[in-house]
């Protein structure tokens, strides 16, 4: 690393020239544009209902009027005190496997697609890549009937109905999220893995290492940062998902935070006091997770993850 110090200093000097006042100004304008809307929402969520509806949040500065009533209503109103906590646990139970499965499976698949050679490999990769665009909405009905009715081919039952009840419905959600998350994960990890130095893997092969061993001992350590950043993405996606949850995790026993909040936001339009507070409750966890794990995220990308 030490021999990189000088170029970095050089690079710094190179950029200095770029950082003219207008550049700083551009950066400040972008930063403001990107944060003000969220800030306005946050501020509004602490204002009394009447004021949210009649005056802009910026008037808060001239006549501050602070209340946590909106949060009380969203968190504890409408009999949700127990259920919101329950929904939180549901979100957790849904999210953990829904992140683990697709990323592990994608890593295995990406290994095969980049370091094991077989006929039609590239077409398979392109095929999986193209599946990214199959709209989730169109996959809901077939997948649901797969669970509820099994698979019949010409009267012969290939796979019986799963008939999952109660908390076992979580299995459906994991299955759905894994299937839907795989194409993008395979695509990104393949990009990453195919950039790994071939010589290392070659020499391991010469030493007689098996594919399993190469994956475990050489590839896995090298792609850990990429896995971490992908995990954060998948986490954000699953945690924020509403559509999959509505279909596969129906019922208060399994439905996650997003579904509960969507119900609470119920009547839309005018009910800003609920919407603002509700939106913030739903935002807080992913933002916290992102902020704490940001380090790994950036590290993953820095490790050369996005070389195309």
């Amino acid at each position: 690393m030490s021999n990189r110090v000088e170029p970095v200093v050089l690079a710094k000097r190179a950029r200095k020239r770029f950082s003219r006042p207008w550049a700083s100004l551009t950066a400040i304008v972008i930063a403001l544009l990107w944060t003000t809307p969220t800030f306005g929402l946050l501020l509004s969520s602490f204002r009394p209902e009447e004021e949210i509806k009649t005056t802009g949040w910026w008037t808060f500065f001239s006549q501050p009027n602070f209340t946590i009533e909106n949060y009380n209503e969203v968190l504890y109103g409408s009999g949700s005190s127990g259920r919101l906590a329950e929904a939180f646990i549901n979100s957790l139970v849904i999210t953990i496997p829904s992140v683990l499965f697709p990323i592990a499976f994608a890593a295995l698949a990406a290994y095969a697609l980049s370091w094991v050679e077989f006929k039609g490999r590239d077409w398979l990769f392109v095929g999986i890549f193209a599946l990214q665009v199959v709209p989730l909405q169109m996959a809901l009905v077939p997948l649901l009937s797969f669970f509820s009715q099994g698979v019949d081919v010409g009267g012969f039952t290939l796979m019986p109905a799963w008939d999952l009840e109660g908390e076992w419905k979580f299995v459906q959600v994991w299955f759905a999220h894994t299937a839907f998350g795989l194409p993008l994960s395979v695509f990104l990890l393949h990009n990453f893995m195919s950039e790994l130095p071939g010589s290392v893997i070659e020499s391991a092969r010469v030493d007689g290492a098996s594919h399993g061993a190469i994956f475990r001992k050489i590839v896995l350590p090298l792609i850990t940062p990429a896995l971490a950043s992908l995990a954060i993405f998948q986490f954000l996606w699953v945690w924020n998902d509403l559509l999959v949850a509505l279909v596969f995790a129906s019922g208060s026993e399994t439905s996650p935070l997003t579904a509960r909040l969507a119900d609470m936001a119920g009547s839309r339009g005018g009910e800003w006091q609920r919407l603002t507070a509700g939106a913030f409750v739903s935002i807080i966890i992913p933002v916290a997770v992102f902020l704490t794990l940001q380090r790994y995220f950036v590290r993953g990308l820095l490790a050369g993850g996005v070389k195309g």
């Binding site: 499976f105 994608a106 295995l108 698949a109 290994y111 095969a112 697609l113 094991v116 050679e117 077989f118 490999r121 398979l124 999986i128 599946l131 199959v134 996959a139 997948l143 797969f146 299955f175 759905a176 894994t178 299937a179 839907f180 795989l182 194409p183 395979v186 594919h211 994956f215």
Partner: peptide, 16 residues
């Protein structure tokens, strides 16, 4: 290749 791809292929076939 197939061994490593199997979980992905099964899930993707059913789900997508």
């Amino acid at each position: 290749g197939l061994v490593f791809l199997i979980p992905t292929l099964v899930l993707v076939s059913i789900g997508l």
